[in-house]
Design a binder for these strands. Sequence first.
DNA 1: CAAGGTCAGCGGTCAC
DNA 2: GTGACCGCTGACCTT
Lengths: 666, 666
Amino acid sequence: MVDRLERLRSRAIESGLWFYKELPIFIKATPSGVDEPETSKYAGKNLEVPKKSGRRLSVIQSDTSNQVSGNLCNSMSSGDFLQLNLPGVSSNGSVLSDATILQPRTPSPVIRPKSTCPYPVAMPPQATANGNFVLSATAMPMSSIRNSPSAYSNISRPTDSPKSSISYVTQNSKNSNFQSRCASASPQGHINHINNQNAPPIPPRIPSNSSLPLGIYGNRRFSSTSSSASSTAINKHETEESNYEGMINQNMFGLDPVIEVKSNVSGGVTPNMSSVDGESKLDFTQEFVTPSFMSDVEPEEEILGSVQFSVTYYPKEKKLVINLISARNLRSADSNGFSDPYTKFHLIPGNAKATKLTSKTIKKTLNPDWNEEMIYYGITEEDKDKKSLRLTVLDRDRIGSDFLGETRVHLRKLPDDTPKQFNLYLENAMRTNSANDLNELSRGKILIGLQYNITQGSLIVEIVRCVELISTDANGFSDPFVKIALIPTTNKAHCKKTTIKKKSLNPEFQETFSFVVPYKELPVKTLKISVYDYDIGNKISIIISDYQWNSSNKMYSHIRDNSPTLSGVSSLSDSTQIKQAKKDLTSEEELLCVVCNSQASGRHYGQYSCEGCKSFFKRSIRRSISYTCRGNKDCIIDVSSRNQCQFCRLKKSIRMGMRKEGIKHS
Amino acid sequence: MVDRLERLRSRAIESGLWFYKELPIFIKATPSGVDEPETSKYAGKNLEVPKKSGRRLSVIQSDTSNQVSGNLCNSMSSGDFLQLNLPGVSSNGSVLSDATILQPRTPSPVIRPKSTCPYPVAMPPQATANGNFVLSATAMPMSSIRNSPSAYSNISRPTDSPKSSISYVTQNSKNSNFQSRCASASPQGHINHINNQNAPPIPPRIPSNSSLPLGIYGNRRFSSTSSSASSTAINKHETEESNYEGMINQNMFGLDPVIEVKSNVSGGVTPNMSSVDGESKLDFTQEFVTPSFMSDVEPEEEILGSVQFSVTYYPKEKKLVINLISARNLRSADSNGFSDPYTKFHLIPGNAKATKLTSKTIKKTLNPDWNEEMIYYGITEEDKDKKSLRLTVLDRDRIGSDFLGETRVHLRKLPDDTPKQFNLYLENAMRTNSANDLNELSRGKILIGLQYNITQGSLIVEIVRCVELISTDANGFSDPFVKIALIPTTNKAHCKKTTIKKKSLNPEFQETFSFVVPYKELPVKTLKISVYDYDIGNKISIIISDYQWNSSNKMYSHIRDNSPTLSGVSSLSDSTQIKQAKKDLTSEEELLCVVCNSQASGRHYGQYSCEGCKSFFKRSIRRSISYTCRGNKDCIIDVSSRNQCQFCRLKKSIRMGMRKEGIKHS
DNA sequence: CAAGGTCAGCGGTCAC
DNA sequence: GTGACCGCTGACCTT
Ligand SMILES: [Zn+2]
Ligand SMILES: [Zn+2]
Ligand SMILES: [Zn+2]
Ligand SMILES: [Zn+2]
């Protein structure tokens, strides 16, 4: 049994789930019967895996210090954005107001709402009468201070972003103005959001066990019950496993992707293909059940239907042939009661975008027949061993695509040269409404810690490690280091770098940096964390775009294209890029455009600004153009959204101090 | 004997000689004895190959209609520029003034000067008082009009060009101002060159049998005797073989490259290595002779010396080891009476440049000892069967290199794993003074026909076929088509394309195009013939650079880099290179959409494309539409069919390298 | 350095 | 849905 668990565990890790090295991993089966443990603790190797059918296995992980990291990785699909609940970081009896959270990207469950939540949940800082902030009732013991909370954050490629992140925030917070509120907050108004009508006001002081409104964290599953649970769980070490639980996708690992499926889902079709995989029957029999948490929190949860397909792996030709046959009982996404379904395949983990295969779209049906063959070439045995095939059924829409369901298949389960039939229920997996999968662009993850010491007036940034960095070298490695800058940079001490970790895609830095910055300046500061490839061999490339933490009240993954992803083979392109990268690196003082936060080219019309904002300002003033805002005149202006609203861009330019008088010729 | 001839013939074709399919091939032995046929006609299979020693075999080919194609391919080495004598094309009783010839690239003989030349030689048009042109005395019969003269022309890579072609023209015409004259000719001054001091003036009207000065064709071997012969030969059909003769290089084919060499050349050394190849002794014994035509027309012909080396082929290691030992009695190239010799090796046919190996340079000697080992790796049995090793001895010069001599060895003659010694006389092979071998860059050959119909005012261009195209696909094939443009292009009808021949490196087009263009505009027009790879699979590259026929009086292969040869994988580096390539192109305004081959409006999303394909790509990506193909997913996408299949259009767009990342806003 | 200008290449529009 | 057309953007350059 231990062997089996070890296998499950390593398979989970291989599958792309990220676990804290330090934390134990638990296996949980749901729903639990009365006569069997609901959760098995892997760490203690005392797991008794329930063999009963109709169950779903999960992998959960918790730490032993009541810190936030416990459930960071639950429910994650490989390549998906990490859903993390990073509370405000407290220190010295004060709370850091703005170290809030990276919004969970999807509404999929992280914590079962009815279970107790062992983790302290962040609370916005509370201003006292004298303007200082005091620790909330969920204050951590001093012992936890050194153990600074860390947040793994997925790092996404550039060029993809703000719009996506806007929609995702909107979706999760159920608050369409969330993002714009943040942006419109005045530099000093970092508490503004608290009084926003959509975010319940935070009481000035929160008692230990009080119910905490968490809407501002954007995930309504952080209900009051879970937050109250957090206080009960506090200081529990090596707690009962049932307190740390989560779900992973059915097919993520551990279970054979093909199992005998019994139709006990109302409205579901009975798939008429039976598994050809004997092994799965041996160990587990499983039924597709409506998870309890879904019915609890998602009353609108509905049947997603099933999909039928076969997969054949030809090791000699390094070919993976997919025969997409049909789907049945799909959800209707269109108003006419039908969907226009199509299917996308990806190989994960890895560059999912590069491995996308898309089927035809069958119009107006809930039972599409594709009968389409799709082939991946160059799939090595190693790929087969490590990768999974993700199948996503989507509804073709005028605007984008609607998610209809997904499922996954481990390639290692495939026999060689023999087609394997699948008939799987679709699952309600991680999705955003955006047609672009942000996760497809992941360039790696970074684990950081943040702390503000208000008595010292310094921001503590801990760079713990990166994982799954993409490689920019031909040899498959990078020489990464991390640059941390508190921008706009007022002095050189606000830009720091870690050491260079040679030839590693998972560098362990464990370096802590301190930025002396007055508390009152925090709202106008942004912490920019970038990962670079030093790469003595050939070139310097920025392998991860900037991850910006804007202290004015949000932490978000900001997307900028600093990363040209070159194969570095030759000549001209390299030197230009080196120039580009050098610019970023040598100018220690991060001069950013006051309007859009991109690299400033110098001072223009009185303010540091980029070429674009310079030209835009010039044109606008010269031609005395009047713009109109289609929104609320509070559009976010950053490097990727600056062209979306001229009105707000010009407004921000003027507000930031660009001078019309600087323009000479009319 | 017929078998042997068949073998010779196929070997000649394999060796890279190009023959007209339609024409018979003759084998000729020189010098001829009195009691034996000088030339054997292969077509009639009545050949009697002379077995006498001291002879040199040639392959010649003639047509049966007194057209020019007869000796187009004689004397050609594989990969060398075709030496062709394409006379002006006459039609309807008029002569096309400018459809002259591709200059022979080398001074090596095409036609023995003392033999009769059966081919009509082009004459510049003669303006009559009313400004019209009349047919010269060498007018062809109407019957030959339809049989439009064709010219095989070697197609060279870009980047190599005008300079090379200048020097070659200069060399052949012995007229250093030739090229510049052409270039400086005013748009209307297409006859200007006639009055140039270096080009003998053309009489206003040429009587039937008059001696015709041919200096303007750049080959002094077109002496008056041969031109007068041309008129005598006219209307001869199925003429005596002796009228169609030429030479090919001694080692090119047919003869074993290593033969017993007797020193009967004055001043030559006596090589003291004897052949180990018994086969050659069996069939032919051969002496190195000074060809009679050389002493006739090249009184300065001199001894080139000999070279000693050994070659070993190791089939298991796919290795070809050359031991370059020495050379003796080299020509002195420097003013001090010595040379600074070095040796280059190439494997031909094929990308000669890629297979270049260069020895050390030994200074100030005519008898260098190299004793140098040079190794080719990755030489397959197939290579061995088809390729030859070319050895070129050169003199290192400050400016470039002087040709000292060359010789060739058939790899198929090599025993396995056993060194074979060679001691060969150097030959005065095809060379230009240019250090750059144009033939090293050959990307294939094209056979075209040109005709100007002065009554219709239209230029007839016939694209017959291409041969030996390089492949740009990984699978070793291209999908070639030919674009013919009369530039500067004044209307769309002046840019035409052939159909696409799928998966062929030797496409037969047999397509005729007519360009309506006033006669008086010809001098300012250039006919640009380019071969493209359509390549559904991956990308379009221009696999052959432009072959330009400037009507102002010359036909030359112009070299331009239209072929970025990018793997289109990624991003920035590509764009820089494209930019680079584009620089070369902009002057020609011949930018085609990579997707549909229509006129591109510029670069969009990374590739040159038309507005339609640009918009289509944008729409498709933005809305992440997936299309379906009703066909085989290999629909041809061109300007007229691009709207037939969205699937294939989008697929091609992506494969051509249009970048999704180029689309900024969702 | 900081003004200016340029134009390839982007987004958007709207007859068709 | 298509694509010719036009205005805006901003990297790059000169002044
Ligand atoms: Zn800006
Ligand atoms: Zn706005
Ligand atoms: Zn196009
Ligand atoms: Zn198609």
